[in-house]
């Protein structure tokens, strides 16, 4: 590892230690009625991870998240490429996408429940509508801002359309598209969990909701910790890849 790598690792370590210390300090202030200490939470989480019924919930959430992410990525890329390639459509729909991004989508949840019923498709749809927008916006911008010289060169070389997409368009747009995918990942996760918090009988979101009803603080803390750990670690990996891709481009 080079000097910069060591420095980044040290910074991450300092951050994690200070977050744990802040948690411990907050615990000392608010007391065991309102939250559990870091050590107790990790221990409770380990206990949860050893119970088979908990894995049923994890599996349910993972399945919903997987399908939601697949739909968000596929439709986001398709919408983004179409709107990016066709200038007028892009101009027409960009403000619509941006407004959709900024509305509290949770208010649309009743409509989705009425349309899909209390089932897996409702959660998937809710996760997907959260994730699709950033992917579409970033893909559209990436395709629009493509260097025209690349396309001209491809035409001079008489590449076939399929070949142009695979070996020119995709590599050139990839860094921006990847940023969109990274944000889409995070928002789809949030959407899926939110979807599970209402009108669902299984999954981590449902478990969280029942834990609030029962005032089960250790369970709330352990699930929150698990979600945060998962989201933060995946997103860290995605950020590293994102930086690599961006640095590779001139």
């Amino acid at each position: 590892m080079n000097a910069q790598g060591w420095r980044l690792a040290l910074n991450a370590l300092v951050l994690i230690v200070s977050l744990l210390l802040a948690w411990e300090a907050l615990f000392a202030v608010v007391g065991s009625q309102a939250m559990t200490s870091p050590l107790a939470t990790f221990r409770y989480l380990a206990q949860l991870l050893a119970t088979p019924t908990f894995w049923d919930h994890v599996e349910e959430t993972s399945r919903a998240f997987f399908f939601a992410l697949a739909i968000a990525i596929l439709s986001g890329l398709a919408i983004g490429f179409l709107l990016g390639a066709h200038r007028l459509s892009g101009d027409i729909f960009e403000p619509v996408l941006v407004s959709f991004y900024s509305i509290p989508k949770i208010t649309l949840y009743p409509i989705i429940l009425l349309a899909f019923g209390l089932s897996l498709p409702a959660k998937i749809a809710f996760g997907a509508i959260h994730g699709v927008v950033p992917i579409a916006i970033f893909t559209m911008t990436a395709v629009r801002n493509l260097n025209q010289i690349l396309l001209k060169t491809a035409r001079v070389l008489r590449l076939k359309p399929g070949k142009i997409i695979v070996s020119v368009l995709l590599p050139a747009a990839l860094p921006e598209v990847f940023t969109g995918l990274r944000l889409g990942f995070a928002l789809t996760l949030i959407g899926t969990l939110l979807g599970e918090m209402f009108g669902s009988q299984r999954g981590l979101g449902y478990l969280l909701m029942t834990a609030i009803g029962l005032q089960n603080v250790p369970l709330i803390m352990a699930i929150t910790l698990l979600i945060v750990l998962f989201a933060a670690s995946v997103s860290t990996v995605l950020i590293v890849v994102d930086h690599r891709l961006h640095r590779r481009m001139p």
Binding site: A34, M35, A186, L189, A232, V234
Partner: peptide, 19 residues
């Protein structure tokens, strides 16, 4: 800051209610 918006902030809402 970079990973902040990947974390579902709503997951903390139950804790806030209890506190």
């Amino acid at each position: 800051f970079a990973t902040y918006y990947a974390i579902p902030i709503y997951a903390f809402y139950p804790l806030l209610i209890i506190m």
